[in-house]
Design a protein around this nucleic acid. Sequence first.
DNA 1: TCTAGGAGTTTGATGAGTCAAACATTCCGC
DNA 2: GCGGAATGTTTGACTCATCAAACTCCTAGA
Lengths: 221, 221
Amino acid sequence: MATEAVENYLKAILTLSQESDAADATITRIAAVVGVTPSTATTMVKRLDRAGLARYERYGAVRLTAKGRRAASDVLRRHRIVELFLVQIVGLDWSEVHAEAERLEHAISPRLLDRLDEMLGRPRSDPHGDPIPDADGRSDHARPGPITACAPGAHAAVARVLDQGAEFLQFLARAGLTPGTRVAVVAIDSIAGSITLKPEGRTALTLSLPVAQRILVTPAF
Amino acid sequence: MATEAVENYLKAILTLSQESDAADATITRIAAVVGVTPSTATTMVKRLDRAGLARYERYGAVRLTAKGRRAASDVLRRHRIVELFLVQIVGLDWSEVHAEAERLEHAISPRLLDRLDEMLGRPRSDPHGDPIPDADGRSDHARPGPITACAPGAHAAVARVLDQGAEFLQFLARAGLTPGTRVAVVAIDSIAGSITLKPEGRTALTLSLPVAQRILVTPAF
DNA sequence: TCTAGGAGTTTGATGAGTCAAACATTCCGC
DNA sequence: GCGGAATGTTTGACTCATCAAACTCCTAGA
Ligand SMILES: [Mn+2]
Ligand SMILES: [Mn+2]
Ligand SMILES: [Mn+2]
Ligand SMILES: [Mn+2]
């Protein structure tokens, strides 16, 4: 089994390379996600290479091997199932489960994971709308787009939120912008850099475009 | 926060010194419980001393300080609440939760722990009958005794099982010897070194005395 | 094309955690 | 009370994970 640190790096590399839009998994970015200095990340990435989990060449982007991708996928699966379990069964708030899952993801056995998965009815996404890779490491490919790409007047359903920050999540919940909610795009003001949204059954609110970009939606009718 | 290793040592020292009957927490015993060599345990116990968590003198028994006892108590509380949660809510078998809790006990936040404790109704003992220290670190003092100390013909209730081994626990469950069950002591043969028990509603069975000693009971009527 | 500053690397250090092997002490059984 | 077995300690070595500081490389803009 990989150490806790190795699992965290793998997860960081996977999310950087496949979740962020075309952003390479560079040393500095990996370091930022994991929360270490770039020199530390360089050292660790070399270890991942030696272990056959990643490919690394000096000054180049880091890529996972099939083995590394598989291992990273497993960590992501554990993380997200744990998050959903904590919200659904234990009753924690969606703003606090990320930090909790960050540690628990390393301590869950396959047996326990499967039990949680079963209790939750084999879910496909976590409380933030992040897709849960299946037990074979395959992940959903349907990618929702940022609400800022919607035309004014359009309706959409919140699919996913790309920011795990507790305050942001609490703000969204108060505004009614949680995954599954229908929302109308009232107006987009590119000069002011703002977007006005009206979640179904709630009062309208205005967000800055960079912030709103972290809210992904699927078109609705 | 203490590291995972430190927490494991603290827990080992606490259980050795207060759970086992008058058995000192010696280096070799600590090493055996934690699963390391005695030389490693020596090194670590010195660190615990430096950190103010234990008192250590060469060739002497290791004792926890108040601070160390408190920290160890917290680990034990987490361990046992997690075990009960896994049996009661998640539905795992009492023979598999110990290994699981051994890792999870280091990854549970105070917030999550309290939530689990609340879901379980503030329990006082875990699936094996081990007492759960309260949030202030205090632990039950009522100590049940080994069933081997009962007089032949006596009735008792299983209170606690001192062996976390999966096979032993599965055996006990099949025999009907789980905490809370009433059991009659049919006979004790000190020559053969065996004891015959009849759990309520089950068929009688014979155990060796050393094995039976790990089953603690409270007298019943 | 040159170059400044950002990105990445190397080096040297540290602490945690571990082991094996050699050594020291303690404690029992005779 | 002695000597060997059990127990505990020290030493030297190793991996993992991390940082700061000094260095190197790369590239985008002047
Ligand atoms: Mn993590
Ligand atoms: Mn999530
Ligand atoms: Mn543990
Ligand atoms: Mn237990």
